[in-house]
Design a binder for these strands. Structure first.
Lengths: 139, 139
DNA sequence: TATTGTTATACTCTATAACTATA
DNA sequence: TATAGTTATAGAGTATAACAATA
């Protein structure tokens, strides 16, 4: 908080939004150095960890609607980072290209450093409680 | 997480974004019942707690840029919730109207219930660590 | 019947630059 | 010179409805 305390600074929901916005702004700046948006990087990480996922499956895993996956995957494909591999005549797997694997590795280095610094900002006595608390909110 | 675990589900930054999006979506739905956006409600809470704040001061307190305060305050003013009170020939305080105070009270009831439920979703042993952790990320 | 991929569209939030009037 | 308020604009994320093709 740049300003001194206000009635909002005790509300967990407000603090959650403010901190997420601040952290994602920081991550966005760092990922721009490898030409990726935050969402792009999450898609690369997801499909890098599992073998064959369709656009719909990626959307469900990341809480992104089918329709909104279209521009994301178009961008990744036109950048040569992913390819489409037909599974049947309706579905297609989104798979990393060689270039996509390299880009994912670069992004992951940035993200690991970012996550490390994020955790270090949290006082030690609270640190280990953070991820379990967030996971409970998402379930 | 609707889907089973993936490489992202251990990243604090990703979980922070996902949980904030989920929580704010929920709050947005609830506040729509009193015709307010989440940001509108935060402005009302802020100016309800302090006597006289200008648009620029509100923006700095809430991490909203000057230019983006304009449509927010125009909306609140045209809804009759706030009024502009000249301080000098350049600055003006944004103050709650009577209608604005009533609307703020309605919104605050909704938000208090929301915040209560949010905290209850966090397992008891992690709960008290949540706000301090978030505050550390915003500083 | 349900699902996949897609198009089109609109709304919200955010970011930047520039301008004027005043402090 | 710095700040307040504003305009204009663009980018990004998100939400909804609808459609054809396929499972």
């Amino acid at each position: 908080m740049p300003e001194s305390d206000n009635p909002l600074s005790i509300l967990p929901g407000y603090l959650l939004r403010r901190s997420a916005n601040a952290m994602m702004g920081e991550l966005r700046d760092r990922l721009s150095s490898v030409g990726l948006r935050v969402t792009d990087a999450t898609v690369l990480i997801l499909i890098g960890g599992e073998n064959e996922l369709t656009a719909s499956q990626i959307g469900r895993a990341l809480d992104i609607q089918r329709a909104n996956m279209v521009p994301i995957l178009s961008r990744l494909e036109s950048d040569g980072l992913v390819m489409r591999k037909p599974l049947d005549r309706r579905s297609q797997a989104i798979v990393l290209s060689g270039k996509g694997k390299k880009r994912l590795a670069e992004a992951f280095t940035i993200i690991e450093q970012f996550e490390r610094e994020l955790l270090e900002r949290i006082p030690a006595e609270h640190r280990d409680h953070f991820v379990p608390a967030l996971r409970a909110l998402i379930e």
